[in-house]
């Protein structure tokens, strides 16, 4: 297996695990963790794509942007979780659904 194939496989598997986490997890902080895992896969994919097309530095710069954006998402998500916990006394997403029709 070449390093590129390993990276591609890793990207897909991490993405899958993250997605599953998003679907199955009910704790808000763990939802953020699942999101992080997904983004790791994407970073891997970006860099692999850069390497494959011979523009590794372009892939790197995009990956950096993604890491920054992802970190901001994590920060905001965690802050939100803290606030939810304060207001609802729980981190369960089911408690969050105030839409009752």
């Amino acid at each position: 297996m070449t390093i590129l194939q390993v990276a591609a496989a890793g990207a897909l598997i991490l993405l899958g695990i993250g997605l599953y986490g998003l679907l199955a997890l009910r704790n808000l902080i763990k939802v953020v963790i699942a999101l992080q895992i997904m983004v790791k896969g994407v970073v891997l994919a970006l860099v692999a794509a850069g390497s494959l097309s011979g523009q590794i530095n372009l892939g790197q710069s995009l990956a950096v942007t993604l890491i920054v954006a992802d970190t901001v998402v994590a920060v905001v998500g965690l802050a939100l979780a803290v606030q939810v916990r304060r207001r609802f006394g729980s981190l369960d997403v089911r408690e969050l659904s105030t839409l009752r029709g």
Partner: peptide, 17 residues
């Protein structure tokens, strides 16, 4: 259609997926 609108995060993600 209201049945689909559970207001729960997981189902929203399921919709996205």
């Amino acid at each position: 259609a209201r049945i689909a609108q559970t207001g729960q995060l997981n189902w929203n993600v399921a919709g996205i997926v």
